[in-house]
Write a protein that binds this DNA or RNA. Structure first.
Lengths: 209, 209, 209, 209
DNA sequence: TATGAATGAGATTTCATTCAT
DNA sequence: AATGAATGAAATCTCATTCAT
């Protein structure tokens, strides 16, 4: 009796049917290809044709797994949102100690990892928020959650005129955009340089060093 | 040759002049409408039809004044780039004094003005950089110029591991994104709160207060 | 001042804008072509391409006036439904006299006219009822109205087991199908022969002559 | 040569026979499913996917038994045509007696049975005649045969202007459409009511009662 | 014998741009 | 100077049929 491990993997096609091993591979190939094409061209300029060519597949097959370009994109976003949620969950309490700074640096390192892996999708997503359609909404929620979580973990000293929420957003924002410019080659900096700068600035901004 | 003022609009004269004035008004209306539509939908999702409807004009008229959708966009970008250039030119030397801080705050205020007026175009432009098409290039140049100018004017104290260019970029970036989130209503903050926070953080980051 | 009579004709394109004379002509051409193509091939087999070719137009133009093939079809149905309603309204009271028979014959003549003009659409519509989608519903209403109106106007003598509603439907049905077979050339009969037979049968069935 | 019963299903043997039996069952399931789907959606709108899903089978299996969607349909039609032929053969000579009326009623009862069983296919077939494709032709032949057979068996009294062929067609037509409206629920009537009405009308029309 | 995966031809639909008035 | 109409290239999407297991 053959034991086909792939039969019960759980993922489904666009019409909800179960997939076998080969189907899962094709589906994954399309997701990977979509990620790359979106990163390169953005949501609107990306053509289904680009994606299927990159995945060595066909139009018919694409619509076997995804109802539309936007559906595939939604799924990519969903994955990233999940990863961000995990990251937020793992955010350390940043205190004004050597250990606190080290924890912050480690966390920023993981943020950098995430950005390296999924930066393309994140940038496309940021872009797509402009048109204010479906996908964008989940983005805002994820961002809101990030800010809230950070606010609770980073103890910003009460100083005149510095609203904790606003200051936190400023820091995250700097962090995200920073990686953005690095990823799009608009600024040349090594991972080490980026982390050093971010920790230093955050440290100075928060604790006034 | 009959001088038909209604057809031969290029000639001077009181009637001809009125028509030329009408042309300018139409053109301006299209630019304004384009700015609004691009801000709302982004470069790709914006339809020529949206623009002409917003301008209470027509397709035919649109192509009377602009060679293409991108041409209109380019012109909008051009204006913004000019304004940014002026702003950079007026960047004060930021020193660690009360007067220095006040100058920085004034300058950030003008930046906020610009963003309020042209934020839509700036955001669209940022987006369009992704697809790496014509328009985006001018954007990079403007950004590069901004960074360079700032670097020469902000005296960042030499401290371990803090590359002046990188740190400056981080600050500008924070500044831009900050206004971005405010403009897209993702964070609610008054102009005063934003300025206070930015000055405070920049001050702390640069001078370690 | 030019008096452009066509400007205010009232009909609109698919996005609701007013049309000028030329637009109306194109729209009408598409409707006529659609009517012919549907009659020949049926709703599903008819291609938008067939319609625009028959109308000497283009795909783009088609979608300028109709949101989809089904929208155009709906409009055709709407017209026919209107004509049927008028016909039903004009149905004479059929009594067992020479005058009553003559009135019935006249009315059946008008029915024949309508079928000659719009038989293609009616047949396609009958077909499309199978799939039970949007358009079909209006059809049932029109049919129901026809039956009701006739029932009130044809005085079927109360005889054992002859439900007036059922008998009326049987007669209409015969009438419609009859023209159907004549129109699709499955039976060769002149207009006169058809009318004679229908009047005779109806007469016999209703009054027992 | 190895005799592998599981693969070489064409050979006889207990195992091979079981497999053959399975094949027949699958084929029958597809025919039943096809009949249901065609009845619901019509020939063009019916998807192979709908049929195989209804039959709890697969695309691959479908094409194992039928060369195309149309082939399956043809086979369904063929069965119905056979049944109609039998029915026509059994058509009694209708005379103006109690016995003649009873025979007509019995025959109409069998027609009703047939329509109940195969009405879906008959309606789809009627529809498909519109597009004038292969399958439709057989339909016309069957209809023609039906009319001819009836004409020879029903003695329509010669009265002025009533062509026997035309009158017969009118009656059959009424009969078919009648069941059609009943089957598609457009008119609510019991089997008894339908038969009573049809016999009564036919009787009146033919013999002038 | 059975199946899910894959395909591609062909259908629909969109929209920047040109045309005729 | 202005406009609505028209266009067609290019995009999205569907589905009957074939393929590989």
């Amino acid at each position: 009796m053959v034991h086909d491990v792939a039969v019960d993997a759980g993922l489904a096609g666009s019409d909800g049917r179960r997939l076998r091993a080969r189907g899962h591979r094709t589906r994954a190939r399309l997701l990977t290809a979509g990620s790359a094409v979106f990163a390169e061209k953005g949501l609107h300029a990306a053509r289904v044709d680009d994606i299927v060519r990159a995945a060595h597949s066909s139009h018919g097959t694409f619509y076997l797994y995804f109802g539309s370009k936007e559906h595939l994109f939604d799924e990519l976003i969903g994955d990233v949102v999940g990863e961000i949620a995990t990251l937020v969950n793992d955010m350390p309490t940043v205190s004004d100690t050597v250990r606190g700074r080290a924890a912050l640096r480690d966390w920023l390192d993981r943020f950098a990892d995430l950005y390296e892996r999924s930066g393309g999708v994140i940038r496309t997503w940021t872009e797509s928020e402009l048109s204010g359609e479906g996908a964008g909404r989940r983005g805002d929620d994820a961002l809101g959650g990030l800010v809230t979580a950070l606010m609770h973990r980073v103890r910003i000293p009460k100083r005149s005129g510095l609203d904790p929420a606003v200051a936190t957003l400023a820091l995250i924002t700097m962090c995200e955009r920073f990686h953005y410019y690095a990823a799009t080659q608009q600024v040349r900096a090594t991972r080490e340089e980026i982390l050093d700068t971010l920790v230093e600035i955050a440290d100075a901004a928060i604790f006034g060093h």
